[in-house]
């Protein structure tokens, strides 16, 4: 399982695939206070990335993988 929902936090784990994007978007749309935990994320398909960019959920933990982190920062860590 790459996408795990625990309460109001979605955990993105390992590889999140293109098929997950729809689920993620749906969950984030229905959970206005939904947060995401990216701690164990290695890679997410760009479709998921744009879902995160468009919905701007609070990030509880950033990826441990420095390269993954750098790319997510470049997309999400903006004013």
């Amino acid at each position: 399982m790459s996408l795990i929902f625990k309460g109001n936090v979605a955990h993105l784990v390992d590889q999140v695939t293109v098929e997950d994007a729809e689920t993620l978007l749906e969950w984030l749309t229905q959970q206005p206070v939904g947060k995401v935990n990216l701690k164990k994320l290695e890679h997410l398909h760009a479709a998921n990335l744009q879902v995160l960019m468009a919905t701007c959920p609070k990030v509880t933990a950033w990826p441990a993988n420095p390269d993954t982190r750098a790319w997510l920062d470049a997309a999400l860590q903006q004013s």
Binding site: L25, A47, V51, A54
Partner: peptide
Amino acid sequence: IRPLEAWLPAAEIDAYACN
């Protein structure tokens, strides 16, 4: 990484249209 065009409201987003 930026959106090509401003994001639509969440309800109208198409996750599979790359922006």
